[in-house]
C-alpha cells in the first residue's frame, strides 16, 4: 500500500465540487485543490453505462459524497420504499464517505415534483421528519447529514425556529447536519433576518459538510429583494464572509462548491475551490 494513498473513507476538511460529466477528463487530469466530489444520487440509478463507469473511476481517486434530492424526507406520506431501495443499492455498491439529504419534500401521491418544497416547523412535522430519518438511517445502515433549506416564504403555523428544529432532529435521530451557507444567506435576506444570529445558534459540532453556491436575485410584491437558490453563479462576497465566520467558529470542514446550472468550464469551478481552500489557509495562519 502506498504511504501517500489518501483516505477515501471520509470527507477531508478540504474543498470538493459537485461533479458534472463534462468536467470528467479535466478533473482527473487537473483537480487542483479538489479532494472530494459530490454526486446527486438520482443521476446514478441506471443499470450501467458511462455514468456508473465515470463514478467508479472517480471513486478510486476521490472521496465521494452522495447527495440525495428525491427522498422527500419532509413528505406527509410514507417514504417511497422503491426509491429507498435504489438508494441502498447505490450506496452498497459505492460505499461513499458521506450521504446527505434535505429538510424538504418533493413527492406527493400524484408524483415527484423535482423541487425542494418547504414544510412548517411544528411539533407534528418534527416528529414526522424524525420518523422518516430513523427509517432512512436504519435502512441504509449509516448516519445521514440533513441540509438546511433556502426559504422564500414562511408558514404562519410554524412554532419552532428553523435552527432549533434542525438541532432537535439531530438530537433525536443521531443524524448529522449539512450547513449550506448560501442557503443561510438566501433565507436571511428573504426573511429579513440576521444570518450571523442563525449561524451562531447552529450546532456546528454536528456539521459534517458545508455547501457554498451562487444564487439569482428577484423582487417580491413589495419590491423587497428576493434571492433564489439557483446554483448558477459564483459565490458572492457576503457568503464568503459568512463562510469565514463558520470556519472561525467551528474549524475547517469539508466544503463543497455547488454549481448546477449554467455550469462553467473546469478552470472557473476549480478557481472557486481554490478560493475556498485559501479561506481555510488564511484562517489557519490567523490562529
Amino acid at each position: 500500500m502506498l504511504d501517500h494513498a489518501p483516505n477515501l473513507t471520509q470527507l477531508p476538511n478540504r474543498p470538493g465540487v459537485g461533479f458534472k460529466p463534462q468536467h470528467f477528463d479535466a478533473l482527473m487530469r487537473d483537480p487542483g485543490p479538489v479532494a472530494w466530489i459530490e454526486i446527486h444520487a438520482e443521476n446514478y440509478m441506471g443499470a450501467g453505462g458511462r455514468p456508473l463507469a465515470q463514478l467508479h473511476a472517480l471513486s478510486e481517486r476521490f472521496a465521494i459524497s452522495v447527495h440525495g434530492v428525491g427522498l422527500s424526507i419532509g413528505g406527509e406520506g410514507p417514504l417511497d420504499r422503491d426509491h429507498l431501495a435504489r438508494l441502498k443499492h447505490l450506496l452498497s455498491w459505492l460505499n461513499p464517505a458521506s450521504f446527505s439529504e434535505h429538510l424538504a419534500w418533493s413527492t406527493h401521491e400524484t408524483g415527484y415534483f423535482n423541487d425542494l418544497l418547504p414544510l412548517p416547523y411544528t411539533e407534528a412535522t418534527l416528529a414526522r421528519v424524525c420518523a422518516h430519518i430513523d427509517q432512512v438511517q436504519e435502512t441504509l445502515g449509516r448516519q445521514i447529514l440533513l441540509e438546511n433549506p433556502s426559504n422564500y416564504l414562511a408558514f404562519a403555523e410554524s412554532t419552532i425556529p428553523e435552527v432549533t428544529f434542525l438541532a432537535e432532529i439531530a438530537n433525536r435521530t443521531g443524524c448529522g447536519l449539512l450547513l449550506d451557507v448560501n442557503n443561510v444567506y438566501v433565507s436571511a435576506c428573504n426573511q429579513q433576518s440576521e444570518p450571523h444570529a442563525y449561524l451562531d445558534a447552529f450546532p456546528l459540532e454536528q456539521v459534517g459538510e458545508l455547501h457554498l453556491g451562487g444564487h439569482d436575485e428577484d423582487r417580491d410584491d413589495q419590491g423587497a429583494r428576493l434571492l433564489i437558490d439557483s446554483h448558477g453563479a459564483p459565490v458572492v462576497d457576503p457568503v464568503w464572509a459568512l463562510y469565514d465566520h463558520v470556519i472561525a467558529a467551528g474549524g475547517p470542514k469539508p466544503v463543497l462548491i455547488e454549481w448546477d446550472t449554467d455550469v462553467p468550464d473546469w478552470p472557473e469551478l476549480r478557481a472557486e475551490a481554490e478560493r475556498a481552500e485559501a479561506h481555510m489557509g488564511a484562517l489557519a495562519q490567523a490562529l
Partner: peptide, 22 residues
C-alpha cells in the same frame, strides 16, 4: 392559505418561486 412574507402579509409572488422551479 397560511404562507406568509416576513411582515406576516400573504406570500404573494414568493409562492411563484415554487411554481416556477417545478
Amino acid at each position: 392559505k397560511g404562507l406568509v412574507a416576513p411582515d406576516g402579509s400573504p406570500a404573494g409572488k414568493r409562492f411563484d418561486v415554487y411554481r416556477n422551479n417545478i
